[in-house]
């Protein structure tokens, strides 16, 4: 291994033959610090309603709102697609009051029983729909 030892020790570091762009590590540190601060500041609850028809979605949102208050989440993200890179609707917790819940539910179908049946038939578990991040 003599020749390789020469390469290693001649390079004067443990990086092998690789380099990084100038200022890269400072940039990385700044980026990560920002991410951690953001993560510490926010505790979000994400609710995916993509699989529900209107009244079922409204029911899930009511449960999620209760859950969010209990867990002291500061934001509830209501996603219609679990790919969070896509656009989503977000409501601050203080907006998630009775009025907003009323707005969410006021236009739902009357056929409540059918929707409940739909949930039972499809064996949908509310807890699996609610994700803590």
């Amino acid at each position: 291994m003599k020749d390789y030892d020469k390469i290693k020790f001649n390079s004067g570091n443990l990086n092998g033959p690789f380099e990084v762009p100038e200022g890269y590590f400072q940039e990385l540190e700044n980026k990560m610090v920002q991410k951690f601060e953001a993560k510490s500041a926010h505790k979000h609850l994400v609710v995916d309603i993509s699989r529900f028809r209107k009244i079922a979605a409204a029911l899930v949102l009511c449960i999620a709102a209760t859950f969010a208050i209990w867990k002291q989440n500061d934001k509830v993200i209501i996603a219609d697609d679990l790919d969070f890179q896509e656009e989503y609707f977000a409501y601050e917790l203080e907006d998630l009051d009775d009025e907003l819940l009323y707005e969410m539910t006021e236009n739902v179908d009357e056929d409540y029983d059918a929707e409940i049946e739909y949930l039972i038939d499809n064996d949908i578990d509310f807890e699996s729909l609610i994700t803590q991040i």
């Binding site: 390079s11 033959p17 990084v20």
Partner: peptide, 11 residues
């Protein structure tokens, strides 16, 4: 960002 010479590349 590869700065190695021929032998470093071979390794």
């Amino acid at each position: 960002y590869f700065s190695g010479d021929e032998i470093a590349k071979k390794l």
